Computed example of a mutant assay.
Amino acid sequence: MHTRLVPYETLTAVQQQQLSALEVHPEQLPFCGDMYCALNALLARPNPSVKGFALLADDTPVAFLLLKRAPCLPHWADEHSATLHALQVDRRQQGRGFGKACMQALPLATLEAWPQIKGLELSVDADNVAAMGLYLGAGWLDCGEAYKGRVGYERRLSRALTPTR
Rank of each mutant, 00 (worst) to 15 (best):
T60I: 08
L39A: 06
C102L: 07
D78R: 14
P61I: 09
A54M: 05
I117R: 00
E79S: 09
A70L: 04
L56R: 07
A82M: 08
G99L: 00
I117A: 00
L67W: 02
Q116M: 08
W76C: 07
L67G: 00
A101E: 11
A70Q: 14
A70M: 06
K68H: 13
A113K: 08
P71T: 06
A113C: 12
A82T: 04
P74H: 04
T60R: 12
A41H: 10
I117E: 00
C37N: 10
T83D: 13
Q93K: 13
H85K: 10
A63H: 03
Q116L: 01
M35W: 06
L106D: 11
A41Y: 10
L108T: 11
R96V: 11
R92M: 12
W76I: 08
F64A: 09
A70F: 14
M35Q: 10
A77D: 07
D59V: 08
L87P: 15
S81K: 06
A57D: 06
I117W: 01
D90K: 03
A70V: 10
M35D: 07
A63L: 03
K100E: 13
P74L: 03
P107F: 06
R45T: 14
L84Y: 14
S49F: 08
K51F: 04
Q94G: 12
F64N: 02
V89Q: 08
A86M: 10
V50R: 14
N47L: 03
L65T: 12
P74T: 10
E112P: 03
S81T: 10
K68E: 15
Q104H: 15
T60K: 05
K51E: 04
W76N: 03
R91N: 03
W114H: 00
H85L: 12
D90Y: 04
R96N: 15
L111K: 11
P61F: 02
L66F: 08
R91H: 14
A41Q: 12
L111H: 12
F64D: 10
R92E: 15
L43G: 01
P46C: 02
W76T: 02
A86L: 10
Q116G: 01
L111G: 10
K51Y: 02
P71E: 09
P46H: 01
Q104C: 07
M103F: 01
Y36P: 05
W114R: 04
R45Q: 13
Q93P: 00
R91V: 00
A113R: 05
P61S: 06
T60E: 14
F64G: 08
A86R: 14
G97L: 08
G95I: 05
C102A: 07
N47I: 02
L65I: 14
P61M: 05
N40M: 07
H85E: 10
R45D: 10
P107H: 11
V89P: 09
D59G: 09
E79Q: 07
L55P: 03
P115T: 02
W114P: 09
V62D: 00
D58N: 13
L108F: 09
G52H: 12
D78S: 15
T60A: 11
T83W: 07
P46W: 01
L39W: 05
L87V: 15
C102P: 02
S49G: 06
A101H: 07
S81A: 14
L55W: 00
F64E: 07
T83P: 07
D59Y: 08
K100P: 01
S81V: 03
A54Y: 05
K51A: 15
Q93Y: 03
A38P: 11
C37A: 13
F98P: 07
L106F: 12
P107R: 05
F64V: 06
